[in-house]
Design a protein around this nucleic acid. Sequence first.
DNA 1: TCAATTCACTTGCAAACTGCAAGTGATATA
DNA 2: TATATCACTTGCAGTTTGCAAGTGAATTGA
Lengths: 140, 140
Amino acid sequence: MATRHRRSACPISIALELLGDQWSLLVVRDLMFKGKHTFGEFLAGGEGIASNVLTDRLARLELAGVVTREPHPDDARKVRYLLTEKGLSLAPVLMELVVWSARWERTAAPPDEVKAMREQREAVLERVKRDWKRARTRGR
Amino acid sequence: MATRHRRSACPISIALELLGDQWSLLVVRDLMFKGKHTFGEFLAGGEGIASNVLTDRLARLELAGVVTREPHPDDARKVRYLLTEKGLSLAPVLMELVVWSARWERTAAPPDEVKAMREQREAVLERVKRDWKRARTRGR
DNA sequence: TCAATTCACTTGCAAACTGCAAGTGATATA
DNA sequence: TATATCACTTGCAGTTTGCAAGTGAATTGA
């Protein structure tokens, strides 16, 4: 597992120590918006993260209290990853990132959803939270 | 300069190709919130970025249209870096990151400012924009 | 006026990190 | 009971990083 040292007490700097890489926020995205919860689902996630790197990122995120791991209810081989409340509360960050990216880059983001993230923040946050609660309580 | 390849059209993924590293958003932070505009100011920025890495990040950000470079009005040795509108529009992302980090980590963020970012978004955005305009139009 | 300093970078190199391909052992499926 | 699938590990080459020491142009101070 990669080790990085604390550089300053600036909140942005601290956040970047954990999240400032190519993959961590994509794992959070998969958990938050794509209903993905297992190692295999993250691996097949389209962007092609390497399995050793994924292992490392999940361990970091777990250590930081952003995700939890538990045996999968349906299959003892699988591990089920879930966002903690700390992880869930990254939703506004990801939403603003989507809004920014959709505004300035050519993305595949559905314009309706981007508009909702921009103009109906609270509603989108509620939906994300509802999905999160559902995943937490039910075995999916 | 580092080369990375496009992985998917997901807006988060695209944003992370540019911003998903330890340093890029710290440069944006220095420009946006700390009134820093020169290579030397970024270098001395507390977190200890290496000069070769800073060179690379500034080049990437410029290529992406997030910052511009111009000769410094007061000193021909210096280069003045400024945020573009695209760079300025990262403000909500950084603000949400500050809010998240201040909530979950021990940071040096002044509680008043964090509260303002949480509860007076528009006012904070206005202030950031005003400072940005001032820097753009006036020398220094 | 000219030596010393400061500026934005470069360069060289070792250490750390990444991506890739090929395992591994435990569990599930047929 | 043989085969496939699961979440990882391992080994390795290539890339990126951090550090220390330049470089040339512009500025400062005596």
